[in-house]
């Protein structure tokens, strides 16, 4: 292929910052001040090429519920306290990264989830950092 084809991005969701909802009669003078749109993709995603969507299937992390969509930035370097996605056994887990005082482990915020340590010949395989949660209410 000669020219790099500008490859498709997910379609932006545009929400006008200011818009008149009255359709009849004169246009609202506020319409003159419409400057831009809010794009949820740019609001929630830093690096669309390296961001993936997955779904939580438990309540291990406070604020993330079963059925929530999570956005994972795979390019981002994980730091202590980040919610991360990690490869564990034959699948992926959603946990909080603990990386302090010489201890490296994956923890759940809620009780009932065993700690996943990085010890011996087992190293943590962090797949990406969770940067946002998306949940529909209705």
């Amino acid at each position: 292929m000669h020219h790099p084809i500008p490859l498709s991005r997910s379609s932006p969701l545009r929400i006008p910052l200011v818009a008149s909802s009255v359709r009849a009669g004169f246009p609202s003078p506020a319409d003159d001040y419409v400057q831009d749109n809010i794009n949820l993709n740019t609001l929630l995603v830093d690096d669309p090429d390296c961001t993936f969507l997955m779904m939580a299937s438990n309540d291990a992390i406070h604020g993330i519920f079963k059925g929530d969509y999570v956005l994972i930035d795979k390019a981002r370097a994980p730091v202590h306290g980040n919610v991360v996605v990690a490869a564990h056994e034959d699948g992926f887990v959603l946990r909080r990264l603990h990386k302090q005082q010489g201890m490296l482990a994956l923890l759940a915020d809620a009780p009932g989830y065993p700690l996943i340590p990085a010890e011996g010949d087992y190293t943590l395989q962090i797949w990406g950092v969770v940067i946002a949660v998306v949940r529909r209410l209705v």
């Binding site: 993936f52 969507l53 779904m55 299937s57 438990n58």
Partner: peptide, 13 residues
């Protein structure tokens, strides 16, 4: 289709 179909995305445990 992990990255292109919502019904196919990875379920996190």
């Amino acid at each position: 289709c992990y990255t292109t179909r919502v019904g196919d995305i990875v379920q996190l445990r």
